[in-house]
Simulated scan of single mutants.
Amino acid sequence: MKDLLSKIQTEIESFNVDASAQSETGNKAAGTRARKSSLNLEKLFKEFRKESLEASKK
C-alpha cells in the first residue's frame, strides 16, 4: 500500500507541474503530459480502491 501511495503522490506532482505549464504558458506538450498523467492517476486510484477494500475486510 505504501508503494502505491508513493506512486500516486509522484504522479500528482507530475500532473501539477505539467498542468501549470500548460495553463500559465500555453505549453501544448505539457498539456499532453498532463492528460497522460490524469489517465495514469485514474488507474492508480482504481488500484487504491481495490487494495483499500481488501484491507478493510481484514
Rank of each mutant, 00 (worst) to 15 (best):
K43C: 00
S52M: 09
S20P: 00
R49W: 03
T10P: 02
R33W: 04
K50G: 00
E54S: 10
K58N: 12
E11V: 12
G31E: 04
L53R: 15
K7V: 11
R35F: 04
L44C: 01
T32V: 14
S56L: 14
A30E: 04
K43T: 05
E47C: 00
K58M: 11
F45W: 05
K50W: 03
F15D: 00
A30L: 05
R49E: 09
I8D: 03
S37F: 01
S52I: 05
L4M: 05
L4F: 05
R35N: 11
N16G: 01
E42S: 08
A19H: 07
S20D: 12
K2R: 13
K58T: 12
S6C: 08
E13L: 14
I12R: 15
Q9S: 15
N40E: 14
D18P: 02
K58Y: 06
N27V: 06
T25V: 09
A29H: 09
E47G: 00
E11L: 11
L44R: 01
A34T: 02
K50T: 13
L39A: 09
E42Q: 09
G26F: 06
N27G: 06
N27M: 07
L44D: 01
A30D: 05
M1D: 15
K50M: 07
I12C: 13
Q9P: 03
T25I: 08
E24K: 04
E47W: 01
R35G: 08
S38Q: 12
F15I: 01
K36S: 10
L44V: 00
E24G: 00
E51M: 12
S20T: 07
K46D: 12
L5P: 01
K58G: 12
K57W: 13
R35S: 13
L53M: 12
A19F: 06
A34S: 09
K50A: 11
E54C: 03
E24A: 10
K43F: 11
A21L: 09
S14R: 14
E54L: 13
S52L: 11
A19M: 11
D18R: 02
D3T: 12
K28L: 15
N40V: 07
S20I: 02
K2D: 15
K58A: 11
M1L: 14
E11I: 09
N40P: 01
D3H: 14
I12W: 02
